[in-house]
Design a protein around this nucleic acid. Sequence first.
DNA 1: CCTTAAGGTGTTACGTTATTACATCCGCTC
DNA 2: GAGCGGATGTAATAACGTAACACCTTAAGG
Lengths: 139, 139
Amino acid sequence: MPDILEDADRHCAKTGARLTPLRRRVLELVARSGAPVKAYDLLSQIDRSSTSAKPPTVYRALDFLIEAGLVHRVEALNAFVACPQAGHGHAAVLYVCESCANVTEVQGARPGQENKPPGFTVKRSVIEHYGLCVDCPKP
Amino acid sequence: MPDILEDADRHCAKTGARLTPLRRRVLELVARSGAPVKAYDLLSQIDRSSTSAKPPTVYRALDFLIEAGLVHRVEALNAFVACPQAGHGHAAVLYVCESCANVTEVQGARPGQENKPPGFTVKRSVIEHYGLCVDCPKP
DNA sequence: CCTTAAGGTGTTACGTTATTACATCCGCTC
DNA sequence: GAGCGGATGTAATAACGTAACACCTTAAGG
């Protein structure tokens, strides 16, 4: 797969977003873990390198990365995953395996809008499916 | 609109779920507020009547109500709304107005499964759309 | 009647997640 | 080098959620 970090560099160069060392490091940590990562886990991993990171450090970096479309927040898990395709950020559908924690992201196809209430303007959607991926045994 | 509490009574009588006074009271509080309610807000409202409610009290009641399909959790808000139709619980699509906080629930039409990864078995879906309802001014 | 078991609630304590507010620093422009 | 804006450091605390255990009621079975 294409390198997420290089992808992010290119994407930020193009959009003017400032991918600082700290933000890049947080993205790297999120990307390395194949699964959703908790903010405080990131925190303790950063901790090991720098002096002693505090919550706002990592939350600010995550806010930036989400805004830049490089990371998704998994709402029902209070966790974060790297977006495999920089910039597609805000239109993702996530399939989360409850057994192995693997997350698959599907782009496009923003469903549910057909039945939407009349006159409602959608700005942001949270679409997360939980279940079992093809590799995990069905109980 | 049909009375949510009576609806809940009927639904629980049919399914054998035990809608105790405490649980009924929590449902009432959630239903009265037209908007998503926070667990700790419920807590302080219960507080006023009974001696002094603690977090597990309200979280246990909410767990029951969600399980019974009477309440939905709004994942991206850490909040809760009453389901207008008892029992349709687990298949809801929510439209949340970010201006007036009103929530409209649409049943059926569980989208997104067309593009799902091969072999993935969906057990539960979180589908929440955020934006502006028809009554709120567009910025 | 007494015992037992199950489910619900009360209570304490704690763990986890997230934000506010303010200080500091770095790079840029004038 | 003064001033500015964005990024980061730091302390404190708010907001959200759960574990563990005690107690009580209710229903079933002897």
